[in-house]
Design a protein around this nucleic acid. Structure first.
Lengths: 256, 256
DNA sequence: AGATGTGAACACTTTCACAGCC
DNA sequence: GGCTGTGAAAGTGTTCACATCT
């Protein structure tokens, strides 16, 4: 047996559901766009549409954060941006290292979405000596040998793994040993980590396979319909939302 | 009353839960690895460990597919590989187009995980004329002008969008108009699609933000613990699994 | 009037625990 | 004996619908 803890501590006030946490970044993005257009307030209906969820869900989500809206009016955009940023921990600076500077690593290094939030790419690391010293996205690539020192010198607690599958677990172990406690894994492998370390996984091939499943089903239903069958559950409601899994989604959250 | 008219058509045999579908690719990957090592059978316990889930969940998942195991023995690896592949629709060939050949698009084009399953990159498409004709991963890049023709000539039903956010909706509209019914979106935007079209979203920045949330919480709990508080819900069980949301996760499934 | 915030109903997912078969 | 397959229980997430407040 693993977690010997009894029930579930409840924790009321701080207990923001995982599904809600997974949607906060979506709301934040929509709100940031409104903020840039200098929109002062939004209703749950409008914001929900912009974020691609339904308004009841959005209101419920916000209710876990507190009562930040005004009845009859809506939400103050700037205020909400601040509250959500704070809740997500984006008001502080998160130095991040990216390990594995292939096409994907380079794409991540260049990705603007990182810097625009509290994330700062503190270092790029690769095992290929030929890359060492070369700059990608204006940041010099450093060699894997120095991984531990880089982590410690920069106080890095979040690591991104974009190496081939074969190297991922080894890199992961070193990151964890050096003090990293959150890992975003792009390698198609299950990572084993000790308790207290979070892993989130992004897997391109898995997403495509899920699409293929639904695609196949559509084709089947089409054929059935054409053949005169009522196609009862045919368009069986497909999900909206944003997790694809809290573990979701689409990406998945792995154990701690 | 005869033919299940009442509630939810039930569809018994075909009703595979979304959460289960999201995990099938994980099982498939673990099984493929076993198959390559010529392992003939596995128990739910072993396979679950390899896939990073717990065994009860795995057995439940498989129970939706049918009774493919042998009590007292386990599952036949080859047979399961076949059954899951078939269920996911991977026994057929899925031509895919990738639109937006920047670093990310190139990374996707080079990604081995596609070809290894039923996916075939039928074409790479980019709006930059300077790229047209250049080969990436051995596949020539074609110009956006020819998008519709490419889709139709190749019978493409799955499209991958790796363009900047600003271009994503427009590309999406053209893909859908040309006949694409499943889209994997890497651009940080909410895509609007008509009924019957599936969108899955992979968002790098969202995943990092979710990690930051947990990371912040850990830091807080640490401080609290150091200050002598029991830190009750501290290690509040973190999720395992694979969706990160079906929607989830992770990535998310959008409406149809 | 108009929109938020939320209890309660509903739906989906996970886990338990054991009957059933090899 | 060992391991699968599955009802039933528990837990999580979503939706409804309306009381509540501006």
């Amino acid at each position: 047996m693993a977690t010997g803890r009894t029930h579930r501590p409840a924790t009321r006030s701080r207990g923001i559901p995982e599904a809600t946490v997974a949607r906060l970044p979506l709301y934040l993005r929509a709100l940031t766009a409104l903020s840039e257009r200098s929109v002062p307030t939004v209703s749950s209906e409008e914001l929900a549409a912009a974020a691609g969820v339904n308004s009841a869900k959005l209101r419920k989500d916000f209710s876990y954060l507190g009562s930040y809206g005004t009845r009859g009016v809506g939400y103050d955009v700037e205020y909400l941006v601040y509250q959500i940023s704070r809740e997500l921990g984006l008001t502080q600076d998160w130095p991040v290292v990216i390990v594995g500077i292939g096409n994907l690593g380079a794409a991540l290094a260049n990705y603007g979405g990182f810097a625009s939030r509290g994330f700062r790419v503190a270092a790029l690391i690769d095992a290929d000596p030929a890359l060492t010293g070369k700059a990608v996205a204006g940041i010099p690539v450093q060699h894997t040998d120095d991984l531990e020192k880089i982590i410690q010198d920069n106080g890095v607690s979040i690591g991104v793994i974009a190496t081939p599958a074969g190297a991922a677990q080894q890199v992961c172990d070193r990151l964890v040993a050096a003090g990293v406690t959150s890992i975003l894994n792009f390698a198609p492998t299950v990572l084993n980590v000790p308790d207290g370390v979070d892993v989130r996984k992004v897997d391109l091939s898995i997403e495509l396979q899920i699409l293929a499943f639904h695609e196949q089903r559509k084709a089947g239903e089409e054929a059935a319909a054409a053949a005169g069958r009522p196609a009862a559950a045919a368009a069986a409601v497909r999900k909206q939302s944003a997790d694809q899994g809290p573990d979701g989604d689409v990406p998945a959250v792995m154990p701690a």
